[in-house]
Computed example of a mutant assay.
Amino acid sequence: MLLKADLLARIKAGEVDTVFRRWKRSTVKAGGTLMTSAGLLAIDSIEPITLADVTLPDVKRAGFASLDEFHRWLDTMKDGDLCIIRLHYAGEDPRIALRNQRDLSPAELAQANAALDKLDGKSPWTRQALRLIATHPGRLAEDLAGEMAMEKAPFKSKVTKLKELGLTESLEVGYRLSPRGETVLAAK
Rank of each mutant, 00 (worst) to 15 (best):
L119P: 06
L116P: 02
R180N: 08
V19T: 15
E47N: 11
T55C: 09
I133C: 06
I49Q: 05
R99W: 13
C83T: 08
H136G: 00
W125R: 13
L177C: 07
P106S: 06
R180W: 08
A110T: 12
E69R: 11
R22G: 03
T36V: 08
A112L: 05
K158Y: 14
L119Q: 12
A115F: 02
L3D: 05
A149Q: 13
E147N: 03
A62T: 05
T55Q: 06
T126G: 10
L162M: 08
R10W: 07
D103K: 12
S26P: 01
R61C: 01
P137I: 10
T183P: 01
M148P: 02
T27C: 01
A186E: 13
L34T: 01
E169Y: 00
D53W: 01
D68Q: 14
K24Y: 07
F64K: 09
E47A: 14
H136Y: 15
K152C: 09
G39R: 11
G91W: 04
D79A: 14
M148K: 10
T36D: 09
P137V: 05
W73Y: 15
A153W: 10
K156P: 00
I43M: 07
D6Y: 06
W73K: 06
W23R: 10
E15T: 08
Y89I: 01
V184F: 06
T76G: 08
R22P: 00
Q101M: 13
A13V: 06
L2F: 09
P48Q: 12
P179C: 09
H136Q: 10
V159K: 12
A145E: 03
A145S: 04
G146H: 11
S45G: 07
K118E: 14
G174M: 07
A114W: 00
R25H: 12
E182F: 00
T160N: 12
R180A: 04
G174F: 08
N113P: 00
E172W: 06
R131P: 00
P137D: 10
A90E: 12
G63M: 09
G166P: 02
N113F: 12
P179Q: 11
L144Y: 04
K60S: 06
R21S: 10
I85A: 07
L140P: 00
L2D: 09
L167G: 05
G32H: 05
V173D: 06
A134G: 14
A97I: 02
V28Q: 11
L109V: 07
R127L: 15
R176T: 14
A115C: 06
L98R: 13
L177V: 08
L7H: 05
A9V: 03
R127K: 13
L144A: 04
E182T: 12
I85V: 15
G121Q: 11
